[in-house]
Computed example of a mutant assay.
Amino acid sequence: MSALNLKKGSSRKSAYDLRDPNSEVIETHTIACVVDNEAGVLARVIGLFSGRGYNIDSLTVAEIDHLGHRSRITIVTTGTPAVIEQIKAQLGRIVPVHEVHDLTVEGRTVERELALFKVAGTGDKRVEALRLADIFRANVVDSTLESFVFEITGTPEKIEAFAELMRPLGLVEVARTGVAALSRGES
């Protein structure tokens, strides 16, 4: 405990970075990179992670500037604070990488993920799946007499909560896009 009775690392969004970079606490970070949109760039970024044994929890890539030939790679990864710093430093050294931002420590962010869920069921389970989908604001994008395909957008936690509720109702298959994230505000 510090003199202010703040527990170290109690707020990852705090203006004061109270986390110990040498701690063994595993943290989840969302890292956004702006890269050249050319062949092999994604392979080099992924190679950095696989070559050093870092895990990627989520990965999304899309072109953001057609005229400038730039893409944005959003990576959700876990590690100790020292490992996260090492990942950011190594990403910054890759030649086609123009910017590296750790959205987790740079301030408030908006994070969303899209998921499709195929749920099979009849009778009461079918009715319950539709009721839960309504509560979670999931859309029915396909329906047969035996199954539904739901589309849901939200935070990764919301997606996971929906999945947990659908499992006992006949969840057959899940497809997730991965996290897309932007920092809030003007910067």
Rank of each mutant, 00 (worst) to 15 (best):
residue 15 A to P: 12
residue 134 D to S: 14
residue 33 C to W: 04
residue 72 R to L: 10
residue 81 P to H: 07
residue 58 S to H: 02
residue 93 R to W: 07
residue 144 T to H: 11
residue 65 D to F: 02
residue 28 T to N: 09
residue 25 V to C: 13
residue 80 T to Q: 11
residue 102 D to A: 05
residue 92 G to W: 11
residue 178 G to R: 01
residue 180 A to T: 13
residue 62 A to T: 13
residue 60 T to F: 05
residue 165 L to V: 02
residue 3 A to P: 05
residue 21 P to R: 12
residue 51 G to Q: 06
residue 49 F to A: 03
residue 91 L to H: 02
residue 110 V to T: 08
residue 81 P to W: 05
residue 90 Q to M: 12
residue 120 A to N: 04
residue 155 T to Q: 10
residue 143 S to R: 13
residue 12 R to Y: 10
residue 12 R to C: 09
residue 124 D to P: 10
residue 91 L to K: 11
residue 23 S to W: 08
residue 49 F to W: 01
residue 12 R to S: 08
residue 50 S to C: 07
residue 29 H to S: 13
residue 106 E to V: 08
residue 168 P to C: 08
residue 183 S to P: 04
residue 182 L to E: 13
residue 182 L to Q: 07
residue 120 A to M: 04
residue 177 T to C: 11
residue 86 Q to N: 13
residue 16 Y to S: 09
residue 56 I to F: 05
residue 98 H to Y: 06
residue 120 A to H: 02
residue 96 P to L: 13
residue 16 Y to G: 02
residue 149 V to D: 12
residue 59 L to E: 10
residue 138 A to W: 01
residue 37 N to L: 15
residue 8 K to F: 14
residue 68 G to N: 00
residue 37 N to P: 02
residue 137 R to E: 14
residue 157 E to D: 14
residue 40 G to Y: 07
residue 98 H to V: 11
residue 161 A to C: 05
residue 5 N to P: 03
